[in-house]
Simulated assay, not measured.
Amino acid sequence: MAGCCTSVCDFIVEYDTPRIVLIKNRKVGVVNRVVQLAILAYVIGWVLVWEKGYQEFDSTIGSVTTKVKGIAITNSTPLEEHIWDAADYVIPSQEENSFFVMTNVILTKNQVQGRCPELPNERTRCKSDIDCASGYYNIHSNGVLTGKCVKYNEEVKTCEIFAWCPVENDTVIPKPAILGAAENFTVLIKNNIAFPKFNFSKRNILTNVSASYLKSCQFNRKNDPFCPIFRLGDMVQEAGQDFQKLAVQGGVMGILIEWNCNLDQPPSKCVPKYVFRRLDNKNFGETISPGFNFRFAKYFRNTNGTETRTLFKTYGIRFEIELFGHAGKFNIIPTMINIGSGLALLGMATILCDIIVLYFLKKSNYYKEKKYKYVEDYELGIESETSYGATQNSGTTN
């Protein structure tokens, strides 16, 4: 216990100070310079130049609005001849950071509330009224059972329901897609961004363009990368997808707008970069409930006062727009912090070489003796020198 206390006391009252020892060893010297060069390359090349460690950064904030244009004409049952414009196929007309374009539809016209046979399946087929429990329904039903078993066609009987009749039959999806011409529709994407820390704002419609240019231009990554008007088919193609296949059951596409700006350069150099991605699962055969669809209805009232509706089961492509990025500008504080951190890292070279010299070389004990010098208390050293001098003088006198 006493020895332990002595060690603790010695540790408390001891003080160490660096001592410079010049070791002439080629291997260790080469290792030292290589490590120093590697650290300098990391600090200067990676931190300061590549990662722009001399700048402070701010993340972007912004807004996105869209406007889709294009017309298509169809002439197929049950639609007959029909012209489609943006008011028909963009549903709803405005969304935040997204838009939906209808590409396919199952149409059920002239529905009225009444009684009609349910679609045939394992739960709805019947032989007599006993098989149809009056008042029963579930989430998959088109209506409420009336308790009767009626003919669906000449071969099949199903339970009668109270519902919007005739009921929708969505077992067969139109193929090819009814609005396959949507491939040629275009969308204008207006994007405003700001970096509040630097009081900097900009939009993706460049300041030097004219109204006539916007009416005629179309985004092309090679020839016209700054036009804000995009063809739907081109965006899907850049994502590596086939528009006509995607249009049958719909899907979800991502439009990524990246603003990475170096504000030490002129503002004209701050421009957006567009990337297009398919976001949903494209393997329809391996996916339950694939694609993207929803239902809506348009309601009418006949001259006799009866309410009717046309039911749309709509398939299409939902485009999600994501805005991200950052801007950097020179600032002395991060510059000095990164330079200081780099200088501190240079000490790693000394530590590594010390480990090699003191623990792995054959002459490690010799180097330890040269590197470390143990000095006793200063006052004890004076007393020893005084005693030694007195002894010498006494011997001389004698």
Score class of each variant (00 low, 15 high):
59 S>R: 15
11 F>L: 14
136 Y>C: 09
173 I>V: 13
155 E>L: 02
290 P>W: 06
64 V>K: 00
312 F>C: 01
190 K>V: 12
195 F>W: 03
366 Y>M: 00
246 L>M: 04
189 I>Y: 02
221 R>P: 09
344 A>H: 05
342 G>V: 01
86 A>F: 05
221 R>I: 14
262 N>I: 05
337 I>A: 00
162 F>V: 11
65 T>F: 05
346 L>F: 08
283 N>K: 12
265 Q>W: 02
156 V>W: 03
217 C>F: 00
39 I>K: 03
394 S>K: 14
307 E>G: 02
316 G>W: 05
203 R>L: 10
213 Y>D: 10
313 K>E: 12
199 N>K: 07
41 A>Y: 05
73 I>H: 12
141 S>R: 01
162 F>Y: 07
153 N>W: 01
168 E>I: 14
87 A>P: 06
168 E>M: 11
262 N>Y: 03
250 G>A: 03
141 S>T: 10
345 L>Y: 04
208 N>V: 03
315 Y>G: 04
215 K>E: 06
39 I>D: 12
76 S>C: 10
298 K>V: 13
393 N>A: 13
173 I>K: 05
225 P>V: 09
163 A>I: 03
227 C>H: 09
121 N>R: 01
36 Q>D: 12
12 I>F: 04
218 Q>A: 03
167 V>D: 08
304 N>F: 10
105 V>F: 09
236 V>H: 00
101 V>N: 06
199 N>M: 01
84 W>H: 07
200 F>P: 08
292 F>C: 00
353 C>Y: 00
95 E>S: 10
387 S>W: 13
340 G>I: 15
89 Y>T: 09
102 M>Y: 04
107 L>S: 11
117 P>F: 07
41 A>N: 06
305 G>E: 10
95 E>D: 14
38 A>Y: 08
84 W>N: 02
50 W>H: 05
2 A>D: 12
65 T>R: 08
191 N>Q: 11
7 S>N: 14
255 I>E: 15
28 V>P: 11
186 T>I: 07
78 P>S: 01
92 P>E: 11
10 D>N: 13
114 G>T: 08
389 G>L: 06
98 S>R: 12
170 D>S: 01
208 N>Y: 01
64 V>E: 00
246 L>T: 14
52 K>M: 13
134 S>H: 09
181 A>T: 00
243 F>L: 10
132 C>N: 04
92 P>F: 04
85 D>Y: 09
34 V>Q: 10
337 I>Q: 07
